[in-house]
């Protein structure tokens, strides 16, 4: 975000196209580099949320699992807001079912 972007935002103008290009590229390259289709990513996201929710109650609406890229390194980033941790016996019960 640069000064120009902020001025444009204040004036209600569109975000600069260079910033838009950078954002779109970062997203598309994260997928290109890992060769993960969005279907697979969705499946992985669902399973990760299932595993995590065995231990803590998470906000499923807000939970986000995405790929982020920096310096040719792609990371899987999960941002999962925790509502509360589950009681210990409840957790153990879930785990022992496995």
């Amino acid at each position: 975000m640069t000064l120009l972007d902020i001025v444009k935002k204040l004036l209600g103008r569109q975000q600069s196209s260079a910033l838009k290009a950078r954002e779109r590229l970062q997203l598309v390259l994260a997928h290109d580099r890992t060769d993960l289709s969005s279907d697979l990513l969705q499946k992985m996201r669902k399973e990760i949320l299932e595993v995590v929710s065995k231990y803590v109650e998470i906000d499923l609406e807000e939970g986000a699992v995405s790929l982020e890229t920096e310096d040719r390194m792609t990371a899987l980033v999960a941002n999962l807001p925790i509502k509360r941790s589950l009681p210990i016996n409840e957790t153990e019960g879930e785990v022992s079912k496995e």
Partner: peptide, 9 residues
């Protein structure tokens, strides 16, 4: 004018 990706980008 930020209408092109910069060298740094």
């Amino acid at each position: 004018n930020q209408e092109m990706l910069s060298v740094e980008d």
